[in-house]
Design a protein around this nucleic acid. Structure first.
Lengths: 157, 157
DNA sequence: ATGTCATCGTGTGTATACGAACGATATGGG
DNA sequence: CCCATATCGTTCGTATACACACGATGACAT
């Protein structure tokens, strides 16, 4: 009998729980992550303090504020963006005078990025609103649930 | 002294926890949701069984499979997509012969959508892989953590 | 019946997001 | 030194994602 249990788990059960629950799209992680991300982005847009700054632009500027100077590729890795995506983000930030670039003197393949004075001023202002945006996004949860969610997301991200 | 503590909490503390933690972009919900969603999408792409089907196309087809026929707008609400986004998704599915449309006889504003025979065949095949995709995405978590995450995401989505 | 307001689908513009291909440059082994 | 390989940034193509404006249609009150 025990071997039957083991065998059953090896068979192509669609869920690993004992009772195979119906497959509902609204209960799948990917779907829920997409919806949650949509809501977080919407809250960010109205709460960060500048309607023209997107979440990815914000995280890029925060990282540049932290490191002073970074190659475009390394910045992309730090904020989790494809190099093609990074290229567009950086181009727009440069067009708005928030970011400056110069060739890396030690490696001609690299472009070094840094915040301009205006970029520094803007990110300082946005950073004041950052915590409120996160708080608003987590508002439906209790303190304990908020910590749990951040913990679980860190594990699967 | 007690009044000082109370006062401190009323002052513009950036986090509501007792000790104000440094603001790290990697610990913010929005950032973690973006990264987790990226990973989920990557797993979907390799695991769903058809590299040309995206997560949103998949959820649209699953819903059409469930309801047989839906107006474009209602489908968008059911899967959490803007009507402009929905328009593009539907157009591509129609171009590939997976979805059909006809004017709603009772309301000339509406377009009724349904799966074609080929669409039905495809979604049936993809649905076999759906559970494995979700399982793989949740793999870093224990059973209990998986349930917790789905629960917490439902609350904030 | 008419006018107001809402809804539906479309089109446009902007911004991620990523695979793929490309040229320029760097690195390490022979 | 030279060649194979890897890295860096760019470009192209495709696909969400959403705000906004538009025209057509429906619903409803007067």
């Amino acid at each position: 009998m025990r071997s039957n249990v083991a065998k059953k788990q090896l068979e192509s059960k669609t869920t690993s729980s004992v009772a195979s629950r119906p497959y509902r799209i609204e209960e799948q992680v990917g779907y829920l992550l997409r919806r949650a991300h949509q809501r977080a982005s919407a809250i960010f847009q109205v709460g960060i303090g500048d309607p023209n700054i997107t979440p990815t632009q914000y995280s890029s500027m925060v990282k540049l504020n932290e490191y002073k100077e970074l190659s475009q590729n390394l910045l992309g890795r730090l904020v989790g963006m494809d190099k093609a995506t990074m290229q567009g983000v950086v181009r727009r930030l440069k067009e708005r005078g928030l970011v400056d670039s110069r060739p890396d003197p030690g490696d001609a393949r690299r472009t070094l990025l840094s915040l301009t004075t205006e970029g520094n001023r803007l990110v300082a202002k946005l950073l004041l609103n950052g915590p409120a945006v996160s708080r608003e996004t987590l508002k439906p949860l209790t303190q304990q649930e908020q910590r749990q969610l951040l913990d679980l997301l860190s594990k699967i991200a």
